[in-house]
Each structure stands twice: as structure tokens, then as C-alpha cells.
Nucleic acid binder design. Sequence first.
DNA 1: ATTAATGCAAACGGTTTGCACTACT
DNA 2: AGTAGTGCAAACCGTTTGCATTAAT
Lengths: 150, 150
Amino acid sequence: MSPAESPGGLATVDAARDALRARGLRWTPQRRVLVEVVLAAHGHVTGAELIDRCRAIDPDTTPSTVYRTLDTLEELGLVQHSHGLDGGEEYHTLPASEHGHLRCEGCGGSWDIEASEAEALTRALTDSRGFTVNLSHLTVVGRCKGCSPT
Amino acid sequence: MSPAESPGGLATVDAARDALRARGLRWTPQRRVLVEVVLAAHGHVTGAELIDRCRAIDPDTTPSTVYRTLDTLEELGLVQHSHGLDGGEEYHTLPASEHGHLRCEGCGGSWDIEASEAEALTRALTDSRGFTVNLSHLTVVGRCKGCSPT
DNA sequence: ATTAATGCAAACGGTTTGCACTACT
DNA sequence: AGTAGTGCAAACCGTTTGCATTAAT
């Protein structure tokens, strides 16, 4: 058995390799590069960004391979995507705890919103409408302290 | 003077015409069509959608004109855009009150979130981080009552 | 040997641009 | 007459696809 059943996140390169192989999928150099890049980013990155960073490691990186692998990783629950300020897709590793994102329109900064922080909202919506919030898809846009409207 | 100073929203075709002319901008047939369509939609519509609906009225509608006019209308504060489930741009008229959106991943349904409903969240973020939420850019994704995970 | 995955190149969809022309004021 | 706005066509960007080839198992 593995050291510990990961709660779903992409914790290490080895975990990704194991997860893929466990499903009869293959572990390739290209996938290794992408997984490394995704892990190193531990934030929110667009597909195009990921391609660039992969190319920094392997200049021969191909878009189709990256996108296809991202799809695969998402199916395995190792990464997830949401949408950024410009509406573009953004990928991020699935961390131990589900969380939302905070984006500043001024500086472009990004922070996590913990479940506890969003609880007031999620509970309000559940109570009043029976609506279940997908926290990891939640992006709150606005202005951070430093970029506040004077 | 106008009947009533609109609080910013796009209420009628005439209001749009007046707002444009007040800035030395022009009122054209194409703009009239788009404004009619946007008003009729009173929901969230993508740019592509708007183009289609405009074409239903005027088959000669051109994408560039629509997008350019949407930009103009947004500058005037008559419409605003946010992002949908797929990350695509969605336009909507600026209603009297600022509000967020609720989107169901299951059925694609869309509802408004009133300021009061989101207040718990906005206040929490303001208090703890000095972050000012842009409510009209807020889209909460999840599952509605009917589409709830069994 | 099997078949998953890659690389290429082309297509895609929505949006944006440059430029000459049109038409609102 | 003056200039904002239009229409066209081409470019753009990130993403997706088909297909023949390569390589992990």
C-alpha cells in the first residue's frame, strides 16, 4: 500500500505516476515535465502559461500534448481548472482542502479563500435556495487592500 | 431634463440613445438593434449570442460592430460583462442594484445574488483582508436544488 | 505486441484589428 | 463638412482535432 491515501491532491511527481499507472495509463517524459511544472506553480496557471513553462524545460513541448495531459490529470482528480479574470482557463493542483480564489483587479494578485471564510456565503445559499456551492470553482473579484479605490 | 436620473442601468432604448448623444456619440440603426437585443435578454448573454440575436433582426450584423458597440456601452456604464461557466464573456444590462450571479453546473441555470445575500461574504473579506468585493463580477458556481448531487 | 501517447499541422471559435467607405450630426 | 461608426477581411490567441508515428507497458 502507499504511505498514505492522498485525499485527492497532486502531492508529488511519484503520486502522479502511480495514479496514472494504476489506471493503465502511461508515464512519459512529457507528462513528467508537465507534472513538475504544475507542482512548482502551486497557484493558478493558464494552459498557455503551462506550455511556456514546460518549454523552458523541454523546448519541444507541444500544446496538444499539454492540453491532453491536463485533461487526463483532471479526470484523475489530480488537477482542476477554473476561470481567471480574463475568463481564461486556469489550472491548479487539487490541494488537501477545497478552496476558492480571490483575485485583485488592480494588481492581479491571487489568494486562496478557505472554506471557513466562505462558509457564511455557502450556508446562506444552501439555506435559502438549496444551492450547493462548488467552492473550488469560486473566484471572487475585487480590489485588495493596496489597490483599494482611494 | 430627463424623467428620472437613471442610477446607471440601461433601462430603455431611448435612454441609451440619449446617453450616447450626450457624449457626442452617434445613434445608428446597428446600435439600436444591439440595444434592443440586450434589453430583451435581461440576463447574461455571450457576445456571440448577441451577434446571433442581432442577426435575427438584421442579418447583416457584423461581429466587429457588435463588439465595438458593447465596449462603448460598457464605457458608458450601460452594460457590464462578467464570465460564464465556460469562461466566456457574458454581457448583461446594469440593473438598478449591483448583484452577483449564481450558476448551476447541472442545468446551466442562472440566478441573481442580491447584495444582502452576499453581504456575509463581502464583509468577511473586507474585515479580514481589507478586500473590496466587486459584486457584479461575482459568479458562484455549484448545483441548484434540482440538480443537487443525490 | 499491444495500444496509449506523441507530434504535426490544420481547423476551430470567439474576439480584435486596420483600413477604406458610409452616414450620422 | 467633419468625424464617428461601419463592413470587410484578415489576423489573432488559446485550444482542439485527425491522423500517422513513436514508445511505454
